[in-house]
Design a protein around this nucleic acid. Structure first.
Lengths: 127, 127
DNA sequence: ACAACTTATATGACACGTCATTGAATGACA
DNA sequence: TGTCATTCAATGACGTGTCATATAAGTTGT
């Protein structure tokens, strides 16, 4: 019990947690106040933005984020309602959805990404 | 825009996120199923367990976790209702609360900590 | 072409975290 | 000592995530 290895593990874990919380909170607040979107919304925008088009993406996106399928669905829904993204049903498999940024979405992403990267740089401290 | 440094930052961030989510989810599920407590509950137990007694702790604990004051208050409330922890008002400052594990809490913590460390070892991969 | 199964997304009930605020106790200081 | 500000903890309204399930579309084997 309570071996030094355990202590070291626990400390490492707490470090990860606090880095994660601190950084996520900072980004979330900044994006929320400047662009009225949350961190998770931005993350989806970011993934869609960097996806080379083609392919029915909702599913594939799910493989590139730790978000639940359910969570993704709701985030995408909010982004759609906000007019930042559009969902189009795929021709070849009508269960799937093809996502793409609207012009507004692309513009917002461009701005927000700058903020996002800056806050990562600050918080992850790779100066 | 999109400099290689940015890419590297974003990748680092996604790594942290996925480590955090994967690990937290694994621990949470295990503790929930075996001991009927969540990860946040365990973390408070863990902090209280390792606190050298004395001092009115609710406040100090808040300084050692990324949790909000509000969140802590609710977690402690659940732990209290579950009979794992007790809140006693401080004599010297009646705004503050002194926390301590009940016998049940200490016993549960002892068991749960083993599981917790094991899952950290698995997920943070310091073998 | 018809079941039975599988896969993609959406949704409803619920739990938990956050923010803002409250209530109570303390401190500061004229 | 009486006021005003500050601090500790609890609470209510609210947003968002999770789980289980629903809906719809595709697949397979006969």
């Amino acid at each position: 019990m309570a071996t030094p290895q355990d202590r070291q593990l626990v400390d490492q874990w707490r470090g990860i947690q606090s880095t994660y919380f601190r950084t996520a909170a900072a980004i979330d607040r900044a994006l929320e106040s400047k662009f009225s979107i949350g961190l998770t919304e931005f993350e989806i925008l970011d993934l869609v933005a960097e996806s080379t088009d083609a392919a029915c993406r909702m599913k594939q996106l799910g493989e590139r984020t730790p978000m639940t399928q359910s969570a993704m669905s709701k985030v995408v829904d909010r982004l759609d309602k906000a007019g930042l993204i559009s969902r189009q049903s795929c021709e070849d498999d009508r269960r799937s959805l093809f996502l793409e940024l609207t012009d507004a979405g692309r513009a917002l992403h461009r701005e927000a990404a700058i903020e996002h990267r800056a806050l990562l740089r600050e918080n992850l401290g790779n100066d």
